[in-house]
C-alpha cells in the first residue's frame, strides 16, 4: 500500500516533468526579467544600494502627466468603446439576416487587430492636414478642421484608438446578448413588465459582468498600446508607453530606474484591469450555463 502510493506520487511527479520545458521558457523570457525589473526599480545605479528615489521621482510633473494622459486616453476610449460597441453589438445581434450578422462579427474580428502604423497612417490619410475628410469638410461645408483639431494630437489619437476598441466591444457584448434568453423577455412581458422595466431589472444586470469585462479589457488594450501612438503623436503627447520606449532606446538621458518604476506601475494598472476582466468573465460564464 505504502509502496503503491509512493509509486503514484512518483508518477505524479513525472507528469509535472512534462510541464517543465514550457515553464522554463516562461521563466526565461517573462518571469525572471520582470522580477529583475521589480528589483531594479529599488536599486540605486551608482551605489548599488536600496533606494526609493525612483518612486519618489514619479511626483515630477512630466511623469504624472504621462500617467494622466495614458489613463485619460484609455478611460475615454474604453467608455466610448463600451457605449457605442454595446449599441452596435445590439443592432448586429437583432439583425434578421444571419449571414449579414456573421459577416459583421468577422469584420469586427479583423478590424480590432488593425492597430499600429498602418492604422495610424490611414487616419493621417483621411484626417491629416490635406486628408480626404479634411478636404471634404472644407469643400462642401466650408468647415476648417485645422488648427482646432489635429490628427497628431490627443483627439486624433482618440479617433484611432476607438477604431480598434469598437469592434473589440462588439465581440465581447454579442455573446452576452445571446445569453439573455428570449423566454425571459417573454415571461417578463407576460407578467406585465414593459421594455424599459425588462432592461432595467433583468437585461442590464445580466449584461453587467460583460460591460465591466469590456470596460477593463478595453482600458488595458489602450493603456498598453504603443505602435499607434508612436506613429501618430510621437513627440506631441506624453504617454507612459512612449516614455518607457524612449528610455529603452536611450533617446533620453534618464536614470534607467525611472523607466523601471514606470514599467512596474503600468504592470500594476494593467494587472488590476486584467484581473477584474477575468473575474467578470467567470461571472458571465455562470449566466450562460
Amino acid at each position: 500500500m505504502d509502496k503503491k502510493s509512493k509509486n503514484q506520487r512518483l508518477a505524479g511527479a513525472k507528469n509535472w516533468l512534462g510541464f517543465v520545458p514550457f515553464l522554463l521558457f516562461c521563466f526565461a523570457f517573462e518571469f525572471v526579467p520582470i522580477i529583475f525589473l521589480f528589483r531594479g526599480s529599488f536599486i540605486d545605479k551608482a551605489t548599488k544600494g536600496f533606494t526609493l528615489n525612483h518612486y519618489a521621482a514619479m511626483g515630477k510633473a512630466i511623469y504624472i502627466n504621462s500617467f494622466l494622459n495614458s489613463v485619460k486616453i484609455s478611460g475615454l476610449t474604453a467608455v466610448i468603446g463600451v457605449i457605442f460597441g454595446t449599441l452596435i453589438g445590439y443592432a448586429i445581434y437583432r439583425l434578421p439576416s444571419e449571414r449579414f450578422r456573421n459577416a459583421l462579427i468577422s469584420l469586427s474580428d479583423v478590424t480590432t487587430n488593425f492597430s499600429g502604423a498602418p492604422l495610424a497612417f490611414a487616419f493621417v490619410i483621411i484626417l491629416g492636414m490635406n486628408g480626404v475628410i479634411t478636404q471634404f469638410l472644407i469643400k462642401y461645408f466650408n468647415y476648417q478642421l485645422y488648427p482646432d483639431f489635429s490628427i497628431y494630437s490627443f483627439s486624433g489619437l482618440v479617433l484611432a484608438y476607438v477604431y480598434f476598441q469598437l469592434p473589440l466591444m462588439v465581440l465581447i457584448i454579442i455573446p452576452a446578448f445571446v445569453g439573455i434568453k428570449k423566454q425571459w423577455q417573454e415571461s417578463a412581458e407576460s407578467l406585465g413588465a414593459n421594455t424599459l422595466q425588462f432592461w432595467w431589472h433583468i437585461g442590464i444586470p445580466v449584461l453587467a459582468p460583460s460591460l465591466i469585462a469590456g470596460l477593463t479589457l478595453l482600458f488595458a488594450n489602450a493603456f498598453g498600446a504603443y505602435a499607434t501612438a508612436y506613429t501618430l503623436v510621437e513627440s506631441q503627447l506624453s504617454l507612459v508607453t512612449l516614455q518607457i520606449g524612449y528610455m529603452i532606446a536611450g533617446e533620453v538621458r534618464h536614470d534607467p530606474g525611472i523607466g523601471m518604476v514606470m514599467a512596474i506601475i503600468s504592470l500594476l494598472i494593467m494587472g488590476l484591469s486584467i484581473a477584474i476582466y477575468q473575474i467578470s468573465t467567470t461571472r458571465v460564464r455562470r449566466w450562460s450555463k
Binding site: I244, M260, A263
Partner: peptide, 27 residues
C-alpha cells in the same frame, strides 16, 4: 495544472509590450 496553464496564457495580455521589452533588455 490546467488552471495554471490557462492563467499563464492570460498573463501576456496584462504585460504591456514596452514593459516586456524593457524587462528583457535590462536582463
Amino acid at each position: 495544472a490546467k488552471p495554471i496553464l490557462d492563467m499563464l496564457m492570460i498573463l501576456p495580455f496584462g504585460i504591456p509590450t514596452v514593459v516586456l521589452a524593457l524587462a528583457l533588455v535590462q536582463v
